[in-house]
Amino acid sequence: MNSSALIHALVDGVLTGSVYALMATGLTLVFGVMDIINLAQGILVILGAYLSYTLSVHFGVDLFVGLLITIPTLFVVGIVIERLFVARLKGPERTAMSILVTYAISLVIEGILNEVYSINQVQLQAWYVNRSFPIFGIYLPYIYLLGFILAAALLGSLYYMLYRTRFGASIRASLSDQTAAALVGIDTKRVATICFGIGVAVTAAGGMIYGATNAFNASSSYDLISRLLTIIVLGGMGSLGGALVAGILMVMLQDIVAVVWSPIWSSMSFFVVLVIVLSLRPQGLFGKQSARVA
């Protein structure tokens, strides 16, 4: 293994991994606060990518400027999904039901996207997608760097909101204990709705970068959601820092395996690592060991 491949794996791991971490953070936040597994996250990323595509191709809006429209749009989409479907789930099987409901939602969105955009793969275009910059002796398209900056900025503001604001405190309270949070007067329903909105809104940014670095169509969502799920399980479900570490780890590992062994097995390597980690540490890398889970 030559050193430039290792550098590529490390750089790509940090740059692309942070984007995955952003998308996974939305998922883990929703799970932590609401005990809801949102299987529609993958297709919502693709929806975000297609929205950016429409804005840039038909209206000539720059991809990053377009986020000013797509992020609020997906925030609203998230709120609507939560109010219409997710909030109605009650009872002991609601986590399992949430998987099925969000899967049904993703089927509907997938069908609509196939109708509107056809199943031919597209990729987002801009000057920074096609031009590259040198870093540690390797070349990467500018979009990787810009995507990293965007993901870091969004993750940073998300963390700021969570750890420095009053609303963030109520989210963290709901994360650690729903009932106790409700008892001290936090409107947990409102927190849940907004969390779901935020969790979905990050897919607009994630989707734009994903769409600029990969050719995609609606069925790319299956690959995405499986990666995002393994990231949040590896990091520990409900752990925000865990999602960040696991996201970066996933991309690095895949790049290294692709070089050392074969690109064919690279996507599988992460699942294998997940299985190994979980057999040693069932709660994931940073998960809380819960004494009693109903």
Binding site: I99, L229, M237, L274, V275, L278, P282, S290, V293
Partner: peptide, 12 residues
């Protein structure tokens, strides 16, 4: 692992 994580592991 317990239920919620079990779902995801079976997917993996």
């Amino acid at each position: 692992v317990r239920r919620h994580t079990f779902v995801v592991i079976t997917i993996a």
